[in-house]
Amino acid sequence: MLSLNPYWGVNFFGFLWTFISRIPLLISGNCQMVQDELQIFVLSLMAISCSLIGVVMMLKKTTMLANSLSHTILVGIVIAYLLSFSSQGGFHPFSLSIKTFIIAALISALITTFLSEFLTKSLKLQEDASIGLVFTFLFSLGIVAVTVFSRNAHIGTEVVMGNVDALVSKDLLWLLFIAAVNISLFILCYKEYLLTTFDPVFAKFMKISTTFFSYLLMLQLSITVIGSFRIVGVIMVLSYIIGPALLARLFFHQFTKLLLFAPLFGIVISIIGVALTRHFLSMYQMPLSTAGMCIAVLAVSYFLALIIKKRKKSWQLPSLDQQDQSEKAL
């Protein structure tokens, strides 16, 4: 089996070369997809979904709420499981039917938002404290419930870390569907998302409901997290939400461009991540976590981008100053 994998034993550049040359073959259906390529496609689709949502959440300054939601999905899954009475030989949060999946997503999004808002508005608690309380409480409940139901003491670890190497092609279809939903929602509701994020008062004046779109965004986030966490764990989903968006923000200053380039950056990072993991396996016989590698690539890219930006600023500064001064006189 191993010898059939064309990526076995290749280094980083070899990987990229092999991948590029296999793309036309894959498209025409002339060869089978192997594990590495499956990982690339799955991670790229995840990157698309997460970074689109991440751009809006970053501009709305609600990414820590995304952190909260990514933890509370566990409770949503437990409740959905209890409600749907589906017993597939014991409970495991990684094997969900579609119905359970959707119910779990809805419940998680609703509980998190409602509880956080109740704490802030009725109980008069400051916003950051209410987010923190809600998710630690719900996640603890989730961990206790899941440990008791599945008799597996290591569930918590798997939720946080996921398992990329256990990918199957069904996951690809799942994530393709989720990505399609996210992309279409963002294309259709582009104006509404832009307006409700930038100027909520004007949006209200234009009769566009800020509440509806923030709930919609939470629902999109919920679906994306539940669909992705079994592959890479909740923390990586979070880094794909904030990372590419922050990276794109450094270079691009148009909302449209952010929505275009953040997913692109996410895809590139995923490819590099998978390639590097294969490189380390081939060259140094070190099996590493693909998820961790992608995050490391993200971190390094951001760090480099910051340095490049600082350098660029120091070159450009004099000319921009002059132009601005003459125009600001108006």
Binding site: L195, T197, F202, M206, Q254, F255, L258
Partner: peptide
């Protein structure tokens, strides 16, 4: 916020769309 001046003025037309 990452928008240009033209983008902001265009928002005024969203009511018609």
């Amino acid at each position: 916020f990452p928008v240009s001046a033209l983008d902001v003025v265009l928002m005024g037309r969203y009511g018609r769309l």
